[in-house]
Each structure stands twice: as structure tokens, then as C-alpha cells.
Computed example of a mutant assay.
Amino acid sequence: MQFTTPQLPLFFTMFFTIYIIAHFIIFRNWSPKLRPEAASCLISLAHGTPATILATIAIFSDPTQQFASLNTQFQNSVLEYSIAYFLMDLCHYLTFYPKDVLFISHHLATLFVFVTCRYLALHGAYPVLVLLALAEVTSLFQNLWTLAGARKGDSEVAHQVFDLMSVPFYVVYSFVRGFIAPFFVYKMIGFYSSGVADNVVPKWLWVSWICVVVLAISVSVLWVSGNWVEWYRVRMVRIEKEKKIR
């Protein structure tokens, strides 16, 4: 199972087309303020779960499964698939939310890892794709949760879906980003710091990768922690209101 490369222009065109269709057709009845975010969620849905599946296949189809293995053709194609998505979503943020420095920085840093792994090092796709799969495994829940949250103010159904999804989503997200991902990064640091891969993945490069990943995980943990705090605050307010009614 292999793709022909380079397919980056093809993948980018696909995500661009999905974005345009989402913005002008699927979510045309949404308010202009919400349409860009909804369109971004749709291309994220088109990327997240497929990327997780493709990355998993690419990982297990490689018999070596080493942190510094030569990238396979299929692994490179999966990297290009994700590069195309992050480029498209970066264009979205630069167009509609140019002051959102956090997300723009996140996308640029992620692109740095994917691009250097695909086009510069040509090695190390195994750990990068493992981290991609871990990052995107919650994508489906997160995007549905985000869409419901965007409409919860004017739709009771969306409000109920948002409330119903919040706790399960936070639990899974916290476990993946707070435990599994840090453990894998710990193993990654142990391997690269031994110096055995310096001839194929230069020290400056793997250190850069680690810094980006650690920062991304830290921001994710802070983000979900803030959501837990907000969920607890809202729950306490509801409990107090119910007590007053009784």
C-alpha cells in the first residue's frame, strides 16, 4: 500500500476544496462569525481520524520501527497529508484570526517537524507519526465538541451535545496528552540523547523536535486543565441554582 509522491499539492487542493465547500455551502446558514471556525473544524475532521489511521498503518507496515529508521514511501505520504492540512489551516488562521498567535505558532512549529522529517532528515518518521497518531486520536471528539460549543448559545440540541461530550472528551484527552504522549517522548529523548542517530537525525534537529513536542504537550495540558476548571465552575453554579429552587 503506497502512494506516489510528491502528493502535497494534491492533498492541499483537497483540503482547500473541503474548506471552501464548508464555508460557502455546508455552513452557509451559520452566522459569518461562526462559519470560518466551522469550516476549519470540517477540514480538521477530514484530517484527524484519517491521519490517525494512516499513521498507524504506516508505523506497523514498517518492520524496523526504529526512532531513526529511513522513512518509507508510505510514511512520507502520510507526512505530506498532514503538512497539507496544517498549511491549509494556517492559511485559515492568518486570514480570519491573524492575532491568534498561539495557534499560528503551534501550526508553524508542527509544520517545522513534519517538513524537516519529510524533506530534510528523511529519517525519523516512526516517532513523528506515533506522536501524530496520539495527537489526532481525539480529533473526532474535539471537532464535534467544538462545533456543538459554537452553536450551544442558539441551539438547545447543540448545548445538550456539548454538555454530554465534555467529560468523556476531557477524560480521553487528558489521558492521551497527559500520560501516553509524555511517556513516549521520554523514550524518544532516551534514544536520541544516546547519540546513536546523530548521523541521520542531527542533534540540533531532534532537539528542536523534542522542544516543539514538549511545548505542544504542555500547552495541551494547560488547555484541557482550563476546560476542567470551567466545567467544574459551571457545575457548581448549576448545583447552587438547584439548591435555591428546592
Score class of each variant (00 low, 15 high):
F184M: 12
V113H: 04
I180D: 08
L79Y: 04
I53S: 04
V130I: 15
E136W: 11
T49S: 12
D62M: 01
I104M: 06
F184L: 11
D154R: 13
Y173A: 04
L134N: 02
V113C: 12
V101G: 03
P63D: 00
H107E: 01
K99N: 13
F179D: 04
A150N: 11
G48A: 02
I53K: 08
L144I: 15
F141C: 06
I57M: 10
G124C: 07
V128M: 11
I180L: 15
Y85M: 00
M88L: 14
L134W: 07
V137C: 15
G153T: 10
C91F: 12
A84T: 05
A125R: 07
I104G: 09
S77H: 07
S77T: 13
L122Y: 10
D89G: 02
Q142F: 11
Y119A: 04
A125Q: 05
H92Q: 02
Y173R: 03
H47I: 09
D154G: 05
T72L: 07
G149R: 09
F184G: 04
N76H: 08
L140V: 13
W145M: 11
L87C: 15
L54S: 08
G153K: 12
G48E: 02
L90I: 00
V157P: 00
A51R: 00
L129I: 05
V130K: 05
